[in-house]
Amino acid sequence: MINRTVLVGRLTKDPNLRYTPNGVAVANFTIAVNRPFTNQQGDQEADFVNCVIWRAPAENLAKYMTKGSLIGVDGRIQTRNFEGQDGKTVFVTEVLAGSVQFLESKNKSSASNQKQESPSDTNPLEGHGEPIDISDDDLPF
């Protein structure tokens, strides 16, 4: 059986770093992951995924990443439940992160909070030579 999750998204708020009574670091965080399609109005929607990470990686995440930072998460889905204050059982599904990759520098993430360019706003080939003439038969896919 396989339970592996790989996500790339932006932190929706600063990670919440806490420590267990035994001094073990744990950070809870949520990332917004864009869906690979648009809705009927042409807007791109996102899923908001709750995650948790433990020990030194939790401390590093809280130290170096803030709201809006682009990160990669590699982990697994876990479910748990507990009794809420009203006595009802609360079910939680979250990603237990084994590792988190910082996909941009701290300076870039703060700049992206101010203005995010969509890929259609920029042309990565602009100013880089002439268009090429290639037949569909020459493409490897």
Rank of each mutant, 00 (worst) to 15 (best):
Q85L: 05
N22Y: 06
A56H: 07
E104C: 11
D121L: 10
N3Y: 06
T79H: 13
T66F: 10
Q78P: 07
M1E: 10
R55D: 11
G42Y: 06
L7T: 10
P21T: 01
N39Q: 06
G84Q: 01
S120I: 12
A46T: 10
Q116I: 07
I31G: 03
S69F: 01
F37C: 03
K13W: 00
Q41D: 14
F48G: 12
W54N: 00
T122Q: 13
F82H: 10
D138E: 15
E59V: 06
P36L: 08
N22F: 05
K88N: 13
A56D: 14
P140M: 01
N107F: 12
E59L: 05
E130P: 02
E45R: 12
R10H: 14
F82S: 03
T38W: 01
L125W: 15
A32Y: 08
E130L: 13
S69G: 04
A27Q: 05
A58I: 02
F82N: 03
R80I: 01
K67Y: 00
E59T: 14
S105K: 07
T20P: 03
D47T: 08
E126V: 00
R76E: 14
G68Y: 05
S99A: 14
I53R: 03
T79G: 15
S105T: 15
V92Y: 06
Q85Y: 01
F29D: 01
A58F: 01
S135C: 06
V49G: 05
F102Y: 11
S118M: 14
K108R: 14
T66A: 13
P140E: 04
T5W: 02
